[in-house]
C-alpha cells in the first residue's frame, strides 16, 4: 500500500531508448523520403523513395536511440550521485553524451560535440521554462490572480506579532485558552 509508484530511474532508460528510436524512425523516414525522391532516376521515383526510407531511416532511429539511451543513463547516474533532480542534471548529461558518443573522433571533436550537446539541452530546458511561464497568461488573459493560500494545517497557530520590549514568554503560558494578548497587556 505504501508505494504506488516505483522509482523511475533505471526503468526510464529503456523508455527513453524506445521513444528516441521511434522519433528517429519517423523523422528519418520523412527526410529520407525527400532525399530518396530527389536522387532516384525518373520513372523510379516511388520505388527509390521507399527503398531509401526502408534502408536508411532505421539507421537514423538507431543513432537517436544511442543518444537517448546514453543521455538517460548519464541522467540517472547524476541523480544517484547528486541525490537531486533538477535541470542541471539534464544539461550536464547532454554535454557528457555529446562528448562520449564522439569519443572515437578525438578530443577536439569531443569538446565541440559536448558543447553542442550541452547547449541543445540547455535550450530545451529554456524553451520549457519559457513556455511554462507564458502559457498560463496566454491561455486566459482574463484569469483571476492566484488565490492566497492558507497556512498548512501541520503547523501550529502562528505566533502573535512581537512588540518591542515585551517578552514573548507569558504569551505562550496563557492558561485555559485565554487569548494571550489580554494576559500580555494586563
Amino acid at each position: 500500500m505504501e508505494e504506488y509508484t516505483r522509482e523511475p530511474c533505471p526503468y526510464r532508460i529503456g523508455d527513453d531508448i524506445g521513444s528516441a528510436f521511434a522519433m528517429g524512425l519517423v523523422g528519418g523516414s520523412i527526410f529520407r523520403a525527400f532525399s530518396g525522391f530527389k536522387n532516384s532516376a525518373n520513372g523510379q521515383k516511388m520505388v527509390g523513395m521507399v527503398r531509401e526510407v526502408r534502408m536508411k531511416s532505421p539507421l537514423t532511429g538507431v543513432q537517436f536511440a544511442a543518444w537517448g539511451g546514453m543521455f538517460s543513463t548519464i541522467d540517472c547516474c547524476l541523480v544517484a550521485i547528486r541525490k537531486k533532480e533538477d535541470p542541471f542534471n539534464s544539461i550536464t548529461s547532454g554535454a557528457l553524451t555529446g562528448g562520449l558518443l564522439a569519443i572515437r573522433s578525438g578530443p577536439r571533436v569531443m569538446a565541440g560535440s559536448a558543447l553542442l550537446g550541452g547547449i541543445i539541452l540547455a535550450m530545451i530546458e529554456g524553451v520549457g521554462l519559457v513556455t511554462a511561464r507564458w502559457m498560463g497568461s496566454m491561455m486566459d488573459p482574463t484569469s483571476q490572480p492566484p488565490e492566497a493560500l492558507e497556512d498548512p494545517r501541520a503547523l501550529p497557530p502562528a505566533k502573535l506579532p512581537s512588540e518591542p520590549g515585551l517578552s514573548q514568554a507569558p504569551n505562550e503560558a496563557a492558561p485555559f485558552g485565554l487569548p494571550g494578548l489580554n494576559m500580555n497587556t494586563a
Binding site: 509508484t5 526510464r12 523508455d15 541525490k83 533532480e85 533538477d86 535541470p87
Partner: peptide
C-alpha cells in the same frame, strides 16, 4: 542521505 525531487511526469522526469 536524503534525495530531493519534484513532481513526477509520465515520462519519469521529476524535475
Amino acid at each position: 542521505t536524503i534525495k530531493g525531487f519534484g513532481e513526477e511526469t509520465s515520462r519519469g522526469r521529476r524535475r
